[in-house]
Nucleic acid binder design. Structure first.
Lengths: 335, 335
DNA sequence: TTGAAAGCGGTACCAT
DNA sequence: ATGGTACCGCTTTCAA
């Protein structure tokens, strides 16, 4: 077990002092080219790797962003909504562009809530994403949102917290337009409009508003947000059929709900898209393989990741405030 | 901007010295109950949060595990195979159980390969998961696998590296048994048997061996692993049809390939499962929504995560070596 | 059981 | 442009 190589070892080999090594390797303009070269060479020869804990302790900065994925209570992290996983990927890419690492944690119940990343100097900021259904979780995070905390949410249940989200109203409009252009005139919206489901409400409003302009009031099937999303979709179909409601176009508040609806329609023998057109929201990969493939409203994931990162970093580095609405577009597949 | 609260402040308030605060809060048995109580109270009142960088610098341990997700070159992290994302969730849960945090990074090309987490004291160990297709990446990681490095791979292309993986042969057997029990007698395997695709080869071998015992030699359709997986599946169907091959049971090396095959079969007007039964491997969520829902071989995600974590920690903490094969089971859906 | 003192390995400030 | 020195906030001996 050889001793760890420190900046002192490098300094000795390069014939300079340790602080000079620090400057040389961190790219300080104060170091002469010749010196830097010698230092870099010495560092390479010794296989020197900087100890980031020392750097962080001294500088007070970590170059780390914490990402918290809030799940439903009792849900295993493996079952995390694929949309959030994709978002995580996008955040990772955006963070890497700005030389930040990601500290990821899956939180779902009071015994593992944790938000002290900044105080503990583990991260410079935090991005919270995940289901709005976990009231306890959001209550917890809301209580920790003090002055000086750099964080941003995706999918926050209300506007207390600083957020970035999809341009949901626009998405609703796009869905309405699509259904209208498909010749549909009896539209239904499936989803929960609970106050906590801010994003869903926005989608509904964009959808309803667009239809009203066309002289149609869309039918609303409110679902129980406590249920699994797929289940919500399936039950909505049951409800529609049992009350004998006539409909030919369906917009679901999320892809998972739409997939459940697709299932329900198939079981009831209703052809999609012949009898009913279906549009989801999220653009999850799974939708591409459903039967028929799900037409959906998709947010630009990469952009969403970049906006989230930019917003936290804005709070950290005092950058100018950034746009908070992620543009959406229609993805026409088979439904 | 108030000053940060340190252990010295807590010490003063509790009427002890700073090292005693450290002992009290870290649960050292050397501290008297009375003292610990006073310290804890003082810490709470001051809102003290320990600075983990100091802890880590001094102790040399981080309580962090790095997770590297290797993607295909040029692939956006958002498009990461959902199986790996689920695995990430499982690793997160398993790590949390042992009080480790996760540092996640998405790596795909030479300009962002990085494995020095231990040297930089960012993490105590590393778990590498992801496609075996990225030769450059694996070459890089192999070159960094020196004595004293604590890490474990999922999906490593060969046995040089320490690995944990599914019980692939058993999975192949299960697939064969299932098809046989469905009355199928003309089996096909679809996937790549390149040396780098270790896991696929194992699946094929388990499958072929089981059939041979039944007196049947399964037909093999080798795919081009450079293509997207779905594409591999679709093309395999094209190939089978164009050469007029007769088959009634298909086992794909992965779910994504199976989904592609399902697509191909649908386009060719071949009924699943009436004319052909299809079995995949991985248990990705998407398979549950395909048409028909994909029957598959699933590894126990949670267990896989726990085994990966246990294996790295074994290298860190000198725990006894653990089993490296994750049990699999058949998930019968509609194909 | 507690205190005193050293030290982990860097960065930042002040000289020169 | 470089060196000297303090210091970030803990943990870990060693003494008492």
């Amino acid at each position: 077990m050889t001793m760890r190589v420190t900046a002192y070892d490098v300094a000795e080999r390069a014939g300079v002092t340790q602080p000079t090594v620090s400057r040389a390797l961190s790219g300080s303009p104060l170091v002469s080219d010749a010196t830097r070269e010698r230092v870099v060479k010495a560092a390479q020869e010794l296989g020197y790797v900087i100890n980031l804990n020392a750097t962080r302790l001294r500088s007070g900065r970590t170059q780390v962003l914490a990402v918290v994925l809030i799940g439903r209570e009792g849900e295993r992290p493996t079952a995390t909504n694929p949309f959030y996983f994709s978002l995580l990927g996008a955040i990772g890419a955006a963070a890497a562009e700005r030389e930040y690492d990601l500290l990821v944690s899956f939180q779902h119940s009071a015994d593992n809530f944790y938000a002290d990343y900044q105080d503990a100097r583990q991260a410079d900021g935090m991005i919270v994403i995940g289901t709005t259904r976990n009231d306890e979780a959001w209550q917890y995070f809301r209580s920790r949102d003090h002055e000086g905390k750099a964080w941003v949410c995706w999918g926050a249940p209300d506007d207390d917290l600083r957020w970035v989200r999809s341009d949901n109203e626009r998405g609703g409009q796009l869905a309405a337009d699509y259904l209208y252009n498909q010749g549909r005139r009896k539209p239904v919206f499936v989803g929960s409009l609970e106050p906590g489901q801010r994003q869903f409400t926005e989608r509904y409003e964009g959808f309803a508003e667009a239809w009203r302009k066309l002289g149609v009031e869309p039918h609303l099937v409110e679902t129980d947000p406590a249920l699994a999303r797929e289940e919500q979709g399936a039950r909505a179909i049951d409800a529609l059929l049992s009350e004998g409601k006539d409909f030919d176009g369906l917009f679901a508040a999320s892809d998972l709900i739409a997939l459940g609806a697709l299932d329900g329609l198939a079981k009831a023998g209703i052809a999609v898209p012949d009898a009913v057109s279906v549009v989801g929201f999220d653009g999850i990969r799974t939708g591409a393989y459903s039967s028929p493939p799900l037409t959906t409203i998709e947010s630009d994931f990469d952009l969403a990741g970049r906006m989230l990162v930019k917003n936290v970093l804005g709070r950290i580095e005092g950058e100018p405030p950034e746009s908070r609405r992620v543009p959406v577009h229609l993805v026409v597949r088979g439904s």
